[in-house]
Design a protein around this nucleic acid. Sequence first.
DNA 1: AAGACTTAGCGAACACGTTCCGAAATTAGC
DNA 2: GCTAATTTCGGAACGTGTTCGCTAAGTCTT
Lengths: 231, 231
Amino acid sequence: MASSSTARGRTGRPPVTSREQILAAALQLIERRGWQRLTIRALAAELGIGTTTLYHHVRDREDLLVQLIGEVVAQMDRPELPADPQERIVVAMTTVHDTLAAIPWAAEVLTVDGFMGRLGDTSVWIVEEVLAAAVQAGSSPERAVEVFRHLWYYTAGEILVRARSAVGPLDRDRLLPEGQTLFGAREASTVPTLAAIGDRWPQITARDTYAEGLRTFVRGLLGPQRREHSG
Amino acid sequence: MASSSTARGRTGRPPVTSREQILAAALQLIERRGWQRLTIRALAAELGIGTTTLYHHVRDREDLLVQLIGEVVAQMDRPELPADPQERIVVAMTTVHDTLAAIPWAAEVLTVDGFMGRLGDTSVWIVEEVLAAAVQAGSSPERAVEVFRHLWYYTAGEILVRARSAVGPLDRDRLLPEGQTLFGAREASTVPTLAAIGDRWPQITARDTYAEGLRTFVRGLLGPQRREHSG
DNA sequence: AAGACTTAGCGAACACGTTCCGAAATTAGC
DNA sequence: GCTAATTTCGGAACGTGTTCGCTAAGTCTT
């Protein structure tokens, strides 16, 4: 099944198509026709190889998409990080966030495959920086991991939910089965808040909501009240 | 296209299969064979109807799964909420979280379809409660919406990421292309934190990490320093 | 050099989601 | 009752991801 633990040299027939060629062709195909149209068959045809040959380079389609995002994330620019630990965390996390959010198809793919649980492994320097900053701010290593977890949950959720909420107003028609009002609240809300918000809800999505929430979360997770806590 | 706004009486051939029958059969099929094996064809065969007939009750497979989760969430128990606004928010959000996290296939489906952006519409009372509590804690209605957004991002991300991270240790072999170490850190980490954590990373997942992070986030978003803020 | 082993390549086939389009069943209007 | 409209039903077909089993092309061992 899996290759043994010893790093054995390559053997067998050398592939006529390299991993780089496959990923490059896939990216090109995505740019040209969108990620939904990136089919195994089309990619194989683009590369001039048989359809099933791709399965020797990629486990399945999901794996292909994961590797594609991983490639993009790996080439992410490493920004200059401020000295203050909390700000450093904010900048680092915002960088990943913006990178993923900037790839139009990334969020879509993220909803489809299981990349979220693995991104922490791919972009190492972010994990490193956040953990180190948390430790510098006074956390134990274990606590630092938890801090990173919380922040990553928030980041992942923001990307996924916001990408899905922005698909357009047709979602309303798609969601409601029949005759049901949005939120079920506009007609008779037990709480005045929902009625007050009403239809403005979808519009209130501010662009930099993420960074603000992130900063608040970091502040809550790392301090400042922890400075006065000695035990 | 869509039926007009007036509630017109039903006409045409009456369906031989009701929405409830479809959802019930689908849930039963999920319990028996897992959600991945819930195919349109199998569900139609189970109901004794033609395959394509299902498409008159459900837009597509994704829609079917969304409706299934919606059904489960809609029957969620409404817990007793404490008086304190912050605690009320914590309990409310934890309830949704636990409901979704308790359905083994829900988190998987959530990763697949676009349910995340719509759940806020389905379970109304949670939105109501959180918004009202935020307002009671001193937020404006617009600010309350932002607070809910942040908390929902965190909740959604936690469910998705944790579900995906828990698929098992085979993920390691699946992720790493060739000869790459996990985190790229065990051999030479520029930051001591990662090396210190090392292999313990996957094990540190505490069960109630979510509630703790949620409480911290709520506290950061709503106060307590806001109580002393009068303008 | 020869065989064993390992890997890449590929055609055929299967199950699946989905669309097309026509047939059947029911109601509304006359 | 008859026709038209409207709705459900479902077979056929297309494109898809994936597996099976095989052949070809290399590498390693002897």
